[in-house]
Nucleic acid binder design. Sequence first.
DNA 1: CGTCTATTTGAATGTACTCAAAAGCGGTGG
DNA 2: CCACCGCTTTTGAGTACATTCAAATAGACG
Lengths: 195, 195
Amino acid sequence: MENFQPLLDYINRIVQLSEAEEKQLVSHISYRRLRKGQYFLQQGDICKFSGFIVSGCTKTFYVDNEGQEHVIMFSVEDWWTSDMGSYIAQKPADYNVQCLENTELIQFSYEEQDIMMREIPKLERFFRIIIEKAFVASQKRIVRNFSMSAKDRYLYFSSQYPQMEQRIPQYLIASYLGITKEFLSKIKRQLLTDQ
Amino acid sequence: MENFQPLLDYINRIVQLSEAEEKQLVSHISYRRLRKGQYFLQQGDICKFSGFIVSGCTKTFYVDNEGQEHVIMFSVEDWWTSDMGSYIAQKPADYNVQCLENTELIQFSYEEQDIMMREIPKLERFFRIIIEKAFVASQKRIVRNFSMSAKDRYLYFSSQYPQMEQRIPQYLIASYLGITKEFLSKIKRQLLTDQ
DNA sequence: CGTCTATTTGAATGTACTCAAAAGCGGTGG
DNA sequence: CCACCGCTTTTGAGTACATTCAAATAGACG
């Protein structure tokens, strides 16, 4: 039932853990099942956990002063989800994380993660490396948002994450791309009509 | 002449290095002076160094297919500069880093940094922590770009970085904000006229 | 003073948004 | 099996925010 293997595989692709270290790691983490619609984190709460998704899908979103939702990211199998800013500072979260599907994930609590990183230096290294990658991806997204039109951003998204386009409603993809659902609909029509 | 103190202070605010560790660190890094206009990194080259700025200012920018420049970030005293994506993967850089002023910085080479992190676990921890913060800042910028108008982004920038507004030409700030220089000029006029 | 660069201005244009309404679609119950 | 409900997607008209292009103005520096 509790399947820690995807996480261990993921980690071992970056640093090589001994069997003892794997056991130690597993003793510090927990498995969790959430149903579609449930929240992993709510804006204003302190993000106590960071999650590695075994199956399912979440959206991370922000509700602005006008009540507008802005999707910041989607997370699927083998991805992480949390509000990093809230997690590392243990301050109230800016974002919500909600399940778009029934989701199984592996949780790291802030305290336990810190203990683990001190006990297992390879894990400190592991987390440094994955956060570096996340930062690079985030910067690239900023560049895309500046240098590409909405149409090109959509084409990029659907070519990079074809599996996501299947399982995520279009109005959420529009929000992720930073455009309205109506405009994304018009972009798709134009792409069909054009060629 | 070679002033490593700002870096040591910066590191010691996050992890506490012993004197021996400080000496070891200093033996792995180098000091560099660049004049206004010089490049710290050019698009297409492999980013061999990451830099901590002691004095001066750099811009990191991207030239797109149409030849348009897009400023991604500015770096001033006590900030880092590099193309992280190129640095961690040792692949050709997407971005340029050029000095807007005469600049003094402390360089970390990719190889030496890796050696240091293995020799001094506290440094591995240090880099994890600062990259986490950079990632959070990057995500927040994505959210601002989506949820704020150009005018509000400008107001945010000038309130957050008043010292930068003084020393950086307006057309570069416009590029950083993702708008044209003409439009930023109009925003500023409107702000003056309004109240 | 002249030159080069940066900033401002204005008119025309384009990209994306708002609002309102209609159409599509998947499930549920009569 | 069809009718209805809720939710998602589409459509269209009008609008707003930001861009392009061209030209004028302002500033900095030798």
